[in-house]
Each structure stands twice: as structure tokens, then as C-alpha cells.
Design a protein around this nucleic acid. Structure first.
Lengths: 154, 154
DNA sequence: GCAATATAAATTGTGCACAATACAATTGTG
DNA sequence: CACAATTGTATTGTGCACAATTTATATTGC
């Protein structure tokens, strides 16, 4: 047998490490699609939100702050990320006329055009994946429960 | 009701986002302890491995490569991290005499001294946490299953 | 009206992640 | 023994994360 630490600090029994490793492995799994679209993983998450907002018309708060709440990220992360997306022409940024402190964000036509490609890839993954839809749903629900207990969920 | 995208790209139904958010929330939950110890979260994970190796005597491969395999991290992440731990006196780095390409890593006495403090905090969290030990164990097992299916687990 | 306060982004600085590359030490082959 | 291929770290460059600070604008109290 392997001589293995089995105290409370054993790496293999840390939930925190399982989360950390699984999150990075999942990001790696998205690399083929992301490379094809020419974006990074956090940029993809931002686009997921902007694509949702894009379908909801005018009555949505599309500020950097609202984006940060949705993704649990702060402006120090989002501002430079959004500037890079803007430089690539995928996103537009403009000050809100009613409150000049607020920056409003939206997808451009070019950004909108990436959505079907992302959707096709994600659906293809489900078809070919070794993980069942039920497993995915259950795991996701458990993670949201954990997020609520950590006081991080919206 | 909220008008909400419920296509396959809805943010709330992405396992990848749940993982990403939960991983960052977990890291945040560790901040009080980490600040007390004066280290970062990835540095803590490195120390978990080195503490395990420290108890196993001489017959363990303590190279940067072995550390990277254990944590699924590469040398571009570990080398600067280990140099910072070395500067703080928590870790020692030396070339292997038998193969000068290999860097061997170990905790110092100061690094060893942090373990009981970390252990006390982790055990305290289990006592006071809203999450049951069974939930934690089940979630961790599911995450390792996912890691294996993503081809990332050792 | 106007100072005091509060708010929203942006900026700055540190430390990961990871791809790509460089480089030195080792190994395999003839 | 040459010497090409391989291996193990280190280096470089880009892009997050997040704490702390700054700046600009709004709001509130008096």
C-alpha cells in the first residue's frame, strides 16, 4: 500500500482541492472551442451573460456592476477584460446618460455571431460526453447549495 | 417572473460556471486562515503536499515535477510560487545530486510549524459549518469522478 | 445652495495559471 | 565516443482574480 497521510489535512480529502482541480480541468476542456472563437474562458462567461441580456430588450441593467454581481467578479477583473473584448469588436461600452458613473455593456453584431458556434459545441459535448445529463444537473445543484452556504450566491 | 434565457447556454445551467464560482468562493472562505498564516491559497495547497511528504521519510520523489503532478500544475506556475515560499523561509529548494535537472523541494522547520495552525482552523470549520461531513464527502467524490472523465485525474 | 457622504468604475500592485519557448542535463543509438 | 532526441526546470508573455486606492459623479443633510 501507499504510505499516505490520512489526517484531516490529507490533500485527497480536501473538498477545496477537488473544486480547484475540477474547475481548472473544466476550463481546459473548453480550450478547443475557446481557441476557435478566439476568446478566453472568463471572456466566454461574460458573453454568456451578454447574450442572455441581449434577448431581453431594454429593461435590463447592463452595467459593469450588474455583470459583476451575476458572475461574482469585481471591476478590477471586469474592466480590463471588457476593454479587450471591446478592442476585438465583440462588445460595446458606453457611459449611461442618466448616471455618468455607470458603464453600460452590450454585445455587438460580431459578438452575437459567436453564440451559435458556442451553442453547437456545447450541445455536441453533451452528445459525446461520458458524463450523463443527470450527473451534471445533480452536481450543479450541489455546487449551488454549497455556494449559498458559503454566502456567495445571489 | 424573471424573463430568463433557458436555452442550452443559460448561465445558470452551466456546470462550468457553477464550478468556477464555487472554486473561487471556497478560496475566499480560506482567506482568514491564509492571512493569519501569511500565505496564498495555491501556496497552502503546495504546503499540504509537502507536509504529507515530510512524514514519509526519504523514499519520496519531492521534485517540482512530482509536485506538479500531484496538484496538476506546471513549472511555470510552481517555480515562482516555490521561490516566494523559499524567500519566506517556509520551503527549501536544492538540485538533486543524481540529476542536476531536478529541483527537490521540502518544508523547513518554519513551514512545518504552520501545519498545526492550519489543521486547527480546518477542524474548527467542520464543527461550525452549515455543510455536513456527508455532503462534503459526496461532493468531493463526484468531483473526482468528473476529473477522471475529463482525463485530468492522476 | 453647498459641503459631506455614498456610489460606480477605473487604476494599481501582487500573485497565480498556462502556453510557448529556452536551456541544460541525461539518455539512447550507432 | 559523438550526437540527436528526450527530459526537467526555468523563463517569458498574456490574461485573469482580488485587495486597496483613486477618481468622477450622485445623493443627502443642513
Amino acid at each position: 500500500m501507499l504510505p499516505c497521510n490520512d489526517g484531516p489535512l490529507a490533500l485527497n480529502r480536501q473538498l477545496c482541492f477537488a473544486l480547484y482541480a475540477a474547475s481548472r480541468a473544466m476550463t481546459r476542456a473548453y480550450q478547443p472551442m475557446l481557441q476557435d472563437l478566439g476568446i478566453t474562458y472568463p471572456q466566454y462567461l461574460v458573453l454568456l451573460v451578454l447574450w442572455e441580456w441581449d434577448e431581453l430588450g431594454e429593461e435590463v441593467d447592463t452595467s459593469v456592476g450588474a455583470l459583476g454581481q451575476r458572475l461574482m467578479l469585481d471591476s478590477g477583473t471586469l474592466t480590463p477584460l471588457l476593454k479587450r473584448l471591446e478592442q476585438r469588436g465583440l462588445v460595446s461600452r458606453k457611459r449611461a446618460p442618466r448616471d455618468e458613473r455607470v458603464t453600460l455593456v452590450a454585445v455587438t453584431e460580431a459578438g452575437r455571431a459567436l453564440q451559435p458556434r458556442a451553442q453547437a459545441w456545447v450541445e455536441g459535448q453533451f452528445e459525446s460526453s461520458a458524463v450523463s445529463r443527470e450527473e451534471v444537473d445533480q452536481l450543479r445543484r450541489q455546487l449551488w447549495q454549497l455556494l449559498e452556504k458559503l454566502g456567495a450566491a445571489g
